[in-house]
Simulated assay, not measured.
Amino acid sequence: MRDFSQNIDWLSINTATIRKQHGQEVALNTLLDQCAAAGIRAVSPWRDQVAAIGLQATAAQLRAHGMSLSGYCRGGFYPAADKVGLQAALDDNRRAIDEAKTLNSACLVMVVGALPGALEGKPHYKDIGRARQEVVDGLAASLEYAREVGMPLAIEPLHPMQAADRACINTLEHALDICDALDPEATGALGVALDVYHVWWDPKLAQQIARAGAKRLLAYHVCDWLTPTADLLQDRGMMGEGVIELKKIRQWVEAAGFAGYSEVEIFSQRNWWQRSGDDTLQACKQAHQAVV
């Protein structure tokens, strides 16, 4: 296993981690400057943040700082109430692939979606089997274009608590089953983004990480699971604050062949989003060296 204790060469910051500072939203160009000043050489930005300052401006700033992208957030959200919605999702994912390619991202992270309308409290249907099939069909269509342009797609399985509204793919095993069905030769075009927050609890985790191997493990996200958790979406902990066995999981991931960035992704309305970006980045650096 790589030694992270001496430097932050393999630390990446998902810009969600510092998108709010002192409770206020901060523009992506400022976030990128802060990361560069902290010596961080990789990030993973969100599409809405990029859109707010412009795709070309983002690309130029990344080049100026010499930054890489460990991933781009996010594609997916395929299920829809009707054919018009399904086509709109495919069109949007095509745009996301193009954006990820322009930014030279390592992959496009796919949060696949679930029951359409559930996020707004008004699901159009309750058939999760239908939603899962629409996800597979959508991924198959997106994969065809992603192969053409050379942008790997990384399915991110989400914790079962988000099966209704954000992602109906909830285990690494399920995500890999889809990868095997759509990309049976494991070409590197389709894989997974492994976020410890969503999978740490899975009794099959070690087995499925080994199954994934280097060709399927496209991104690795870290944070911690607090006890008690005050909010299942926006109360993630800094690494070392919670109960996730971070070093054990990274050992499994690296034994399977992953050699990329450990990307810190923390949603923290009550704690880290109330601090300055500099303080949060310093804590990320220290925790990455000590406990990741």
Rank of each mutant, 00 (worst) to 15 (best):
G76W: 01
Q87T: 11
L172N: 10
A80I: 01
L90R: 11
A154N: 08
C73M: 14
A52L: 01
A37P: 10
D127K: 06
P160R: 06
R47W: 15
L31A: 09
E173N: 11
P79T: 09
V84R: 14
Y78K: 00
Q34E: 14
A42K: 11
Q49V: 08
I97F: 02
V111F: 06
W46H: 14
A36V: 09
R94F: 04
D33W: 06
A164F: 15
A88M: 05
H174K: 13
H174E: 15
G129I: 05
M161H: 14
T102V: 15
A131G: 02
A118S: 14
Q56I: 13
V43Q: 05
S142V: 01
P160T: 05
P123N: 04
V109H: 05
A100K: 04
A96E: 10
S142T: 09
M161A: 12
L31W: 09
I169V: 15
G75R: 01
R166I: 09
I53G: 00
A51C: 03
Q56T: 15
T58K: 02
A64K: 13
E148M: 01
D33E: 13
L103R: 06
L119H: 10
V149Y: 01
C35L: 07
Y78P: 00
K122W: 11
M67T: 01
Y125G: 08
Q61V: 01
W46M: 10
A146C: 03
I169E: 06
I128E: 12
C168H: 08
A81S: 14
A118D: 11
S44F: 04
W46K: 08
A42T: 12
V84D: 15
R74C: 12
L69S: 03
L115H: 05
Q56P: 06
M67K: 04
D48R: 12
L32K: 02
G54Y: 12
C107K: 01
G85Q: 11
V135F: 06
A96V: 07
D98N: 13
A118W: 10
S70R: 06
A140V: 00
L108C: 09
D33S: 12
A96W: 01
V84M: 11
R166K: 15
P160M: 00
I97S: 04
A59M: 05
Q87P: 02
N170F: 04
V135E: 04
L32A: 04
A60I: 00
R41S: 13
A88L: 00
D127H: 12
I97Q: 03
L139N: 08
E120S: 14
R132T: 08
G66K: 03
P123T: 04
Q87E: 14
A163R: 13
G138F: 03
E120F: 07
E120A: 15
G117D: 13
D33T: 09
T58C: 11
L90N: 11
G85M: 07
A106R: 15
D165N: 14
G39F: 08
P160D: 11
